[in-house]
Design a protein around this nucleic acid. Structure first.
Lengths: 188, 188, 188, 188
DNA sequence: CATGAATGAGTTTTCATTCAT
DNA sequence: AATGAATGAAAACTCATTCAT
């Protein structure tokens, strides 16, 4: 079955998001998949390879999503809004992946350099462009902090049940507010 | 020497923030302190006790700081501003502690319940009060997401060298902007 | 294809000689042959069977070669010389086999008893006969040590590029010298 | 006890010589020492470190012995004789070490480069000097093959009970014969 | 014959914790 | 209080072998 490799990745992702990378053992993954530890190593050279493949895969996936949105949207306002909503949509649809990406960034940030297609860099560019065009009334890096920080926490609080409401509504609300905060509000 | 206990906590904190909790061994801590592993257990029952003591201690420290500010400030605007600036001041002055608190929240969130004096809860109350008073133009939980998310990322980006400028300036800027975003901006 | 079995033996021999027996995995062999691990077991019951078959085969091959030379040569001097040269010729032509035989002798000497036609025993007999005839001026077992030791090292140093010259010349030189050392030199 | 480290080395050496390096497990060593596997790692970083320390240690020991003999002996004949006898004395007194050095050379020859003080190189120099002085009637590298090969096999056959007699007698006999073979015998 | 996936026992290594001194 | 040695359980990883297809 060619699906075993994917199953391993899926289960590993779920466990990593749930318990952390270090606290998930290869045996945990194997048990979740329904195979023995040794079988894992037919598909991956090491636990770390699983981690890196997951990071690369989901990091790229979010990157591509945002990249497509940015390239295919004409209006500035619509582009910004769609980026925010696509970002949250990705997080809501792949909560384990999103949590995992954050954990990886937090604990193994140095290894992130090895990867291309880091979503945050794309958003940084977007904000820099907006600043260059005079749309953005903020230091783009400060705006980046507001934007990414907000997105992360909105996801977290929705996941924890603190924020209520339908996902799309939350996403729209977040998009609208961030636009108002960063663009429409008086100059900094 | 009673100072050894404190040294253990300091070095443990530094290592936890740098490498993660699971990835820091008791031997790492002992080596950093300049004693042997066994000696650690003269001061603590377990590695987990160190972790919990650190979390409790710094969580309380930030909590007390914010609590004092909230209680001792008359004006709403000033209170909000001081909370933001104190929060960032704490993070900038105790970067390892702040990183550690975040790691602990992220990976061992369930254990957080055992602790009282969680800073975020204090801020949540503050925002709820502001909402009740009609000052805040947002769902307080959404505002919490914006605020905490922004603070975390501002700290992170300043630490990483992405955000430049003096700490106090960054803190003031953050405080002013968050106030404008959450309070002055048009109703949501 | 019956050739697969032979290919397995060939590749296994090469790897055993290169890396050692224990350090060569069944997977290594399979990969070298261009089949999968499972297929190996269609041809052999176990890795050990491959090892034993190789040992038996090449041990016999050298044995037969020497035996033929001993039986078909009339003069003592010529017989001795041909034994030495045939021995080295075998080693030079089958360097992997010769290395493998030595490794097996060294690490699994006890298993050698199960095999008949051990080349060294043939040479021991030859030297004993020479001693009985009064040709050999040495304890035959000491002579055996000189002879086998020299042959092994001559092969090794030629393989390593330390000894230079054409193989046949080296073989002749070795044969002549050993004869002079063991036979012509003054009594021990 | 500071002796544990030495005991580990001693037992490891014994087992490596008896069964081979790869076929000796860390558990085997621990059991022989009377401790648990984990305790081994308080004294050594890895099994390989034990292997390398043993090789370096005994390789040096033999090297120093030969070096001292070479430097402190005036007459050529006596020097040569003493080198041979010291070499065999070392092998007879440290049979496990000598077997281990051979195994290591055979299976992990490439790693030998990392070490200085390789005994064979010392003997090679000795023979080169003898050749330069006109004492040696042979290509020094061929003489090296005869000499080292003979010494190795003499040790082996004595160990196996094939060669009989007192060690000193065997050593003297070997020294005398090698001198006669390589020096006194007619030119090659 | 061959594949490719899997097993299961074993190997090396790690690490929080204990304990005699 | 502190050391240094050791434990024991568990982690990551290896590999000869089996088996359904």
């Amino acid at each position: 079955m060619t699906g075993t490799r994917e199953t391993i990745l899926d289960e590993a992702l779920r466990l990593f998001a749930q318990k952390g990378i270090r606290e998930t053992t290869v045996r945990d993954i194997a048990k979740a998949v329904g195979i023995t530890e040794g079988a894992i190593y037919r598909h991956f050279d090491s636990k770390d390879q699983i981690v890196h493949e997951l990071f690369g895969r989901y990091s790229s996936m979010l990157y591509e999503t945002l990249d497509r949105v940015i390239k295919n949207t004409a209006s500035d306002r619509e582009r910004f809004s769609k980026v925010v909503r696509s970002f949250l949509e990705f997080a809501f649809k792949n909560p384990d992946a999103f949590k995992f990406l954050n954990i990886f960034h937090y604990l193994r940030g140095k290894e992130v350099r090895r990867f291309k297609r880091i979503p945050v860099l794309l958003i940084r560019e977007l904000l820099s462009d907006m600043r260059a065009k005079g749309i953005l009334n903020q230091d783009p890096d400060f705006a980046l902090a507001v934007m990414i920080g907000t997105l992360e926490r909105v996801f977290l609080y929705k996941t924890m049940g603190i924020l209520r409401g339908r996902r799309e509504e939350i996403a729209s609300l977040t998009a609208d507010n961030l636009w108002r905060f960063l663009v429409e509000c008086g100059k900094s």
